[in-house]
Simulated scan of single mutants.
Amino acid sequence: MLHGEIEISAFLKARRAALDPGEVGLPDGFGRRRVRGLRREEVAQLAGISVDYYTRVEQGRAPAVSDSVLDAIARALRLSDGEVTYLRNVAVPRRRPAGGPPRCVPGPAQTVRPEIRQLLAAMDPAVAAVVLGRGLDVLAWNDAGGRLSFDLDALDPARRNTALLVFLEPTAREVYPDWENKAEEVVGNLRADSGRHPDDPRICEVVNELLAGSPEFRRMWAAQGVRECLRGTKRMRHPAAGELTVTFESFRLGADPDQVLVTYTASPGSPSEAGLRRLAAGAAVVAGSVS
């Protein structure tokens, strides 16, 4: 199945399976269990709706699910804020019109406004920054941002994508010492993006390539996790700038809501800040390599 054919079923089933009945006051459930997690009738009971109706929601057969029902299901499944948003985005079945175009047909190129590029160029050299678009494509960057992990200028434009680089570039595990955490962060962000744009051709293209090319991605994607990570601290390893510990913040652009400005900074006077300044001054990394 193509990524664009997003189903609510897989998401709700995964969330049911992730819950321990004892956590929601159902230590014994409705008899002996053969599978882990909650049953449909238990979710329906907790949400205060009929089993038949919950079943139709989970199977994507409920044409118009009210916000109150979605909220009740979210509470029953102990969904996070990001998961609630994703549930709302995929709750209404989306079907291709008869004779409509096939999914994953390349769409128009995403562009960054000149004013945003001007902002990137005007930033302090110790601030590394990139602009991400749909599907986690890297659309623009300043000097330090373009050299922070991979040499973006040297990469083929089609490969300038955070998810593709993290999962398919052989040196990604050298760039990110905490690779597993970085990979899960990428999957959570990509899943959230797919909920906002379930039929976007670029997201579909990226996810399908990763499903075909990365067993680790297949495993993480199948878990149906939705965890949009917009801020935090991460460790990175650069051959010229050395070991870096940076904090990142993400800012969705008001006039371009499908684009996110991500900045990376380090503590003033720290070796990591000095490393960012070296990157801005021209310390480069060979495309796809950190050695």
Rank of each mutant, 00 (worst) to 15 (best):
E41R: 03
E41V: 04
V43T: 05
V43A: 02
Q45P: 00
Q45A: 12
Q45R: 13
L46D: 03
L46F: 02
A47E: 00
A47T: 03
I49K: 00
S50D: 03
S50A: 05
S50G: 11
D52Q: 09
D52L: 06
Y54N: 08
Y54P: 07
T55S: 11
T55M: 06
R56C: 01
R56S: 05
R56Q: 07
V57D: 02
V57L: 14
E58L: 12
G60M: 13
R61V: 04
R61A: 04
A62C: 13
P63S: 14
P63W: 14
P63Y: 12
A64G: 08
A64Q: 14
V65G: 01
S66G: 05
S66P: 05
S66E: 07
D67L: 12
D67T: 11
D67K: 03
S68T: 15
L70S: 01
D71M: 03
A72Q: 03
I73K: 00
A76G: 09
L77H: 07
R78V: 04
R78H: 10
L79V: 01
S80Y: 00
D81V: 10
D81H: 10
G82R: 12
G82W: 12
V84M: 03
T85I: 15
T85L: 13
L87S: 04
L87R: 02
R88S: 04
V90Q: 02
V90I: 15
A91Q: 05
V92L: 05
V92I: 09
V92K: 04
P93E: 07
P93Q: 05
R94G: 02
R94S: 06
R94D: 06
R94H: 07
R95D: 01
R95T: 12
R95G: 01
P97I: 15
A98N: 04
G99R: 08
G100E: 12
G100W: 14
P102C: 13
R103Y: 12
R103H: 11
R103M: 09
V105N: 01
P106V: 13
G107K: 11
G107Q: 06
A109Q: 15
T111D: 09
V112A: 08
R113M: 09
P114F: 13
E115R: 15
Q118A: 10
L119A: 14
L119V: 15
L120Y: 08
A121H: 00
A121P: 00
A122R: 11
M123L: 09
D124P: 09
D124S: 14
P125H: 01
A126K: 09
A126E: 09
A126C: 09
A128P: 10
A128V: 15
A129Q: 08
A129K: 08
V130T: 14
V131P: 03
R134K: 08
G135Y: 02
G135I: 04
L136A: 03
D137H: 08
D137L: 07
V138F: 01
L139M: 11
L139P: 07
L139N: 10
L139Y: 11
